[in-house]
Amino acid sequence: MSERRPPGLFCAAWLVARKDLAIEYRTRTAFFSALVFAVLALTIFYFTWDESVISPNDRAPGVLWVVLTFSALLGLQRSFGLEEYDRGIDALLVSPIGRESIYLGKALGNLLFLCAIQVIAIPALALFYNLPVGRPLLIVTGIVGLAMIGIVAVGTLFSAMAVNTRLAELLLPMLSLPFFVPVLMNAAQAATKIFAGRPVAEVWPWLKVLIAFDIVFVVACTIAFPFTLEE
C-alpha cells in the first residue's frame, strides 16, 4: 500500500479549526453565552456610570477590554472541553498530524470565534457610548485584533493545561489573567488615545509591544503545547 502524505502544519491546523467552528456553528452554546455576556456587560456599564462625571469616550475603552477579556475566557474554556467529552483529543494525538498543528488549529478557531463576538460587540459599544465611527473605530478594531491574538495564544495553551483538572473553570482565568495584563495595558492605552482623537503615530510604541507579545507568545506557546499533553 502506498504511504499517504498527512497534511502539513498549517493545513492540519486549518482542519482542526474548521472542525471546531463547525461544532460551534451546530451548537452555538459558547457563542450565545459570550454574546449575551458582552451585550449585558455593555448595558450594565452604560447605566452604572454617571455621564456628567466620566465622559463616554473615557469609559468606552475600559468597558471594551473588560468585555473582550471575559468573553474570550468563555470561548477558551470550551476549546479543549469539547475534546474531553468523548476523548476526541486521543484521536487527534494518534493521527499523523503534529501536536503543534492541534495548538495552532485550536488557537485559530478561538481567534475566529472571538472575531465573531467582536463583530457584534464593537458596533454595540459604538452605539451605546456614541463613539466616533469611521477611522478611529477601524483603528481600535485593529488594536482589538492584535490584542486578541495575544490573548488567544496564551489562553489556548492554558485551556489545554486546565481542562483535565478538577477546577478547570477557575484555573483557566487564574492562569491566564496575569498573562493578559501586558496585552490589556498596552491595548487599552492605545485605544484610549485613538478614541481621544490622537494620531496613530502617538500609539505606535504600544502597538509595537502588542506585536512583539503576539509573536513571542504564539511561537513560545506552539513549542510548549506538546509538553502540556504528556500524562
Binding site: E3, P6, P7, A12, L15, D86, R87, G88, A91, P96
Partner: peptide, 30 residues
C-alpha cells in the same frame, strides 16, 4: 499514519454527523 485506535470511548464529536467525523479523520490521515 499506519495505526488505527478504537477505544471504549468513542472519540467522536457529538455535534457532527458520522460522515463528518469519519471524513475529518480521513483528512487528518491524508
Amino acid at each position: 499514519a499506519q495505526v488505527g485506535l478504537i477505544s471504549h470511548q468513542s472519540m467522536l464529536y457529538r455535534a457532527l454527523t458520522p460522515r463528518e467525523n469519519v471524513e475529518f479523520a480521513a483528512r487528518l490521515y491524508g
